[in-house]
Amino acid sequence: MLLDTAALYFRAFHGLPETITAPDGTPVNAVRGLLDIVARLVGEFAPTDLVACWDVAWRPAWRVELISSYKAHRVAEPADGARPAREIVPDALTAQVPIIAQVLDALGVARVGADDHEADDVIGTLAATATMPVDVVTSDRDLFQVVDDARQVRVVSTARGMRDLELVTDAVIRTKYGVGAAQYADFATLRGDPSDGLPGVTGIGEKSAATLLSRFGDLEGVLAAASKVGSGIPVGQAAKLRAGAEYARRAAPAVRVVRDLSLPQFDGVIRMTDERRRTGADLARRWGLGRSMDRAIAALTTE
């Protein structure tokens, strides 16, 4: 099980009141909420391995070089050359991220990240190289591109909330969008994704993007057809595709998750030990995590 960790702790933060605090007054709603999410997921899906995939860079420089608008609307202040641009994050959540890392480490949940890459890229790499079935837990549609029925890679989508988890397979993606998982990144490139600051090809929406990909296979096939007379693409649509071809070719590698990162060695096997129980209990007292820590420890105890 691969966790899109930031997506989950943002969900936890917004799902619980900030009045949930540690004895010293530090807000811990995201910490407690994430522990409850982990307990729910491990209890329901019973993974043997669990990895908290980490955003070392939430807005990688190489993606911004490709598409300058990438996540630009989420920048709290512009980069000034001396430091990277900061993501808009509530102060009450920022204070909790180090605690979240501390708690995951204490419970033996592997945290894995990579320089200048997002958690999505870690997930893409681990999903592509896994030798066992994989569940990717996220609310982000971008990760639909890693779904692979043949290799038993699916997404457990939290987009509708933790009470209404959706298991996303290739069949689900085809039903929803009219494209397969292997085409999803090209589909998102053509359609755009305002949540990531990606405008898409002007005049190409979801239906037209799906229709084009179903006829021509992939992005390059669509762009090649648009440049030919008699391809069957309506004249106006072909003109829009030609006008947007440069954008599409630059955006495509920014949209696609990386699948070949060199990642640090880690042990993802769920293994609760007495030392981890003690450390977890100590942190629960320190941060006022109460029953949330108890539930997480119980779920991670596999004996």
Rank of each mutant, 00 (worst) to 15 (best):
D4Y: 00
D4H: 08
T5C: 11
A7C: 14
A7N: 14
A7Q: 11
H14A: 10
G15T: 02
G15H: 02
L16S: 00
I20A: 10
P23F: 02
G25A: 02
P27R: 06
P27W: 05
G33D: 01
A39Q: 08
A46C: 09
P47G: 08
L50G: 02
C53M: 00
D55W: 10
W58G: 01
A61L: 14
A61I: 05
W62F: 15
R63G: 00
V64W: 08
L66M: 12
S68Y: 00
S69R: 00
Y70P: 14
K71Q: 08
R74L: 07
V75S: 09
E77M: 14
R86A: 14
R86S: 14
E87C: 12
I88K: 15
A92F: 03
L93G: 07
L93N: 02
A95E: 13
P98F: 02
P98L: 08
I100F: 06
Q102E: 15
L107I: 04
V112C: 04
V112D: 06
G113T: 06
D115I: 11
I123T: 10
L126P: 02
A127N: 11
A128G: 11
T129C: 08
T131Q: 12
P133E: 02
V134K: 10
V136K: 00
V137D: 06
R141C: 10
D142Y: 03
L143R: 01
A150P: 05
R151D: 03
V156A: 03
R160T: 06
L165N: 05
T169E: 09
V172C: 01
V172L: 08
I173V: 15
I173C: 12
R174T: 14
Y177M: 05
V179D: 12
A182N: 03
Q183S: 06
Q183P: 04
A188D: 03
T189M: 04
P194V: 11
P194L: 03
G200T: 10
G200A: 01
T202L: 07
I204G: 09
A210H: 05
R215L: 15
G217E: 06
L223H: 01
A224M: 10
A225R: 12
A226S: 11
S227H: 12
K228C: 07
G232P: 12
I233H: 02
P234M: 07
Q237H: 05
Q237I: 14
A245G: 05
A248T: 07
R250Q: 11
A252I: 14
A254D: 11
V257E: 05
R259F: 00
S262G: 13
S262T: 15
L263N: 10
P264A: 05
Q265F: 13
Q265H: 14
G268W: 00
D274W: 12
D274P: 00
R276D: 01
R277E: 04
R278Y: 07
T279N: 14
T279G: 09
A281E: 12
R286W: 08
R286A: 15
M293T: 04
D294Y: 02
R295N: 13
R295T: 10
L300I: 01
T301K: 04
T302E: 01
